[in-house]
Amino acid sequence: MGRRLRALRSELADFFELPKDILLDLPRITLQGNLRLVIENHRGLIQYESGQIRVCLEKGELVILGDDLSIALISQEEIIIEGRLRGLEFRD
């Protein structure tokens, strides 16, 4: 996707008040306190340790830090991560 096309889409989404995650293929991340994290629209796991999970996204990756992290379920559409979450980081 070219940068100009991406900018156009973003403006379109703003203008029509459409959800950006659909038009821009962004992940939708929902946090429930520090216990549960739901990532929709992901591209698979990169690394899974009990203290750190790296999830591949459309652009870059998401690093989840915490203790006793477990994957409550994983499918093509979403990942649900449970445990004691301590931090989130987006990396390119």
Partner: peptide, 17 residues
Amino acid sequence: VNLCISRGIYLWGIRRD
């Protein structure tokens, strides 16, 4: 895990040890 999801295999209750 990635291969499983790409084949449409649903996994749950994943714990690391």
